[in-house]
Design a protein around this nucleic acid. Structure first.
Lengths: 148, 148
DNA sequence: CTAGATTGCGCAATCA
DNA sequence: CTGATTGCGCAATCTA
């Protein structure tokens, strides 16, 4: 991931010809072969001795071995991919939970803060009343200061 | 190498073995052919009502149509799947950001709360000193016993 | 160049 | 029956 580098040829339906032959009457199916539509590149570095693949004949045993290995690798890779997706999904759930916890905490802290501020204001008023006593008794006054 | 799986004639989960032939000299590949796995056994699997597929010979046009539709559906489904995975990943990122925000807020609120509490304690002490003067407070010390 | 890892795609079975 | 999912194999690439 995070490798925005190469552009895949992916000449599907764009620069590729799908060849189909009909020669499988009894049950053999063939998959369309992809043929590059423009092989005419700057033909360099390819000696005529070997056109492309020295071993296109893959009916042999090594071919099967390679296929089997690749199939295995494919399976592995896909399992890994799925696992990662699951992990990501689980991460989302965990983060959501964490978020709720944090929000609850914020709510609690906010409430505490509010209470304290109110208390503060009250004390300030009490002090002001102490400075300017006006027929009000201080002992009977500040009684509604209850915290949680 | 963590999957001890099939060897050459891998049996599908339905009772079908995959047989391979070689005939693709110029570029045609063939897909494994499905053949019933019980060739000459005591056939006791299916009721005589319906063998299995009345139309296994699908070299025709309807077959190709169905295949094409299915291929389209497959593509669609996979795109959707990938999209969902991406969305999930992005959700993780968003939730992580949100989490950081919330934690910062909690930190701030905690700090505010701490300050207020300290102020409160200080006032409480001052009040206590006012009620019970004890000569030990530095602020009140220079008031009473320094008039000599 | 060799070998594993990814990726796009087609096929078939199964699900809904 | 039809579209959507899913597992699997193949081949082209990428990566080490």
């Amino acid at each position: 991931m995070s490798k925005p580098s190469q552009e895949k040829p992916m000449i599907d339906q764009n620069g590729v010809s799908v060849i189909q032959t009909q020669a499988h009457a009894s049950g053999l199916q063939q998959v369309p072969q992809l043929v590059p539509v423009s092989p005419g590149r700057g033909g360099k570095a390819m000696p005529p001795s070997k056109a492309k693949k020295c071993t296109p004949e893959k009916d042999s045993e090594e071919y099967r071995q390679r296929r089997e290995r690749n199939n295995l690798a494919v399976k592995k890779s896909r399992m890994k991919s799925k696992q990662k997706a699951q992990d990501t999904q689980q991460r989302v759930n965990e983060l959501k939970e964490e978020n709720e916890r944090l929000e609850a905490k914020i709510k609690l802290l906010s409430k505490e803060l509010s209470v304290l501020k109110d208390l503060f204001l009250e004390h300030a008023h009490n002090l002001a009343d102490n400075v300017h006593p006006q027929n009000t008794d201080t002992t009977t006054m500040g009684q509604n200061t209850n915290a949680q």
